[in-house]
Design a protein around this nucleic acid. Structure first.
Ligand SMILES: [Mn+2]
Ligand SMILES: [Mn+2]
Ligand SMILES: [Zn+2]
Ligand SMILES: [Zn+2]
Lengths: 149, 149
DNA sequence: ACAGTGAATTAGAATGATTCTTAATGGACG
DNA sequence: CGTCCATTAAGAATCATTCTAATTCACTGT
């Protein structure tokens, strides 16, 4: 049983604490700060971006802790990774089923809700395989920008 | 007009030479060797794997050339990149529309033909955006391997 | 308040894929 | 042969991420 995907909750300290605890994560100051960055606006951020936003007021969280914490959050199912750019991983606080629009020019990632999107005709899995997830990535670019020379 | 997606062609030197030339690429020894590795079996290989396979008989291609050549092939539309693993890029000699099954345990990538797969209900693109492609990635794992602790 | 304890944090080194710099090589052609 | 320009390639650099090892922290029990 997973926590139902909460969308618009007040992300104050007590709420975030409860969220972490529900996922078996001890709510430390740094972890709460990182969780706040991720859940406040429901964005898709890289570790570097999260590090900067977490340290906007006072520098109090190290780069190592950001990576440790993101891996912990991922392992506990609090966030998911979005793999669209070979250069860096993005972290998505929305773990519910949904897909992504990726602007290859700007690097911007936008959610595509899973309802309304129908995909059928997937081949049967080879025996002994279990589906972990299906990712749909729509790659777009700003019109007028030629991809070739 | 792009070359029609040829599937089963005899990948001898003259054929590969013509293929490269059709894409505006001068067919050098190293490039032909790399093309042979990619097109012989229609696999999804990383740069490292391609380097090794290219140098199986005689070591004659450097790592730098493998990366240069793969980027050249990609820019000229000879191959496409497959982004499923944050650790490395895979190169796909099949540039026709198709999707991928990714075994997160073994790292194996399998093609899913595009026909037979129907996806509908994609949201309209914001104005000034052009779709570059739609990737569907089915992530699977070998049954019995728990992703959690 | 204070020591003890295990978990969390962190600075900095290490790793590894990829790119960059720059110099050597090589084929085409006169 | 010698010139010319593309190609190749060794090794340095970059950069995201992980690892190591040591410090700090939050609690607990006194
Ligand atoms: Mn990771
Ligand atoms: Mn690349
Ligand atoms: Zn998302
Ligand atoms: Zn493929």
């Amino acid at each position: 049983m997973d926590a139902a995907p909460l969308q618009v909750i007040p992300y104050d300290r007590p709420t975030l604490s409860a969220l972490l605890r529900r996922h078996g994560i001890a709510p430390t100051h740094q972890r709460l700060e990182i969780a706040r960055v991720l859940f406040a606006r429901c964005q898709h951020l890289s570790a570097e971006q999260i590090l900067h936003q977490a340290n906007e007021r006072h520098a109090e969280t190290s780069k190592a802790t950001v990576y440790n914490t993101l891996n912990l959050f991922r392992d506990r199912g609090l966030v998911r990774e979005v793999i669209v750019d070979p250069k860096r991983v993005f972290y998505d606080p929305n773990t519910g089923p949904h897909h992504h629009l990726y602007n290859v020019d700007t690097g911007e990632i936008t959610d595509i809700p899973a309802d309304g999107l129908r995909l059928s005709g997937l081949p049967e899995l080879p025996a002994g395989m279990v589906t972990e997830g299906v990712d749909v990535i729509v790659r777009v670019r700003s019109a007028g920008v030629s991809g070739l020379g």
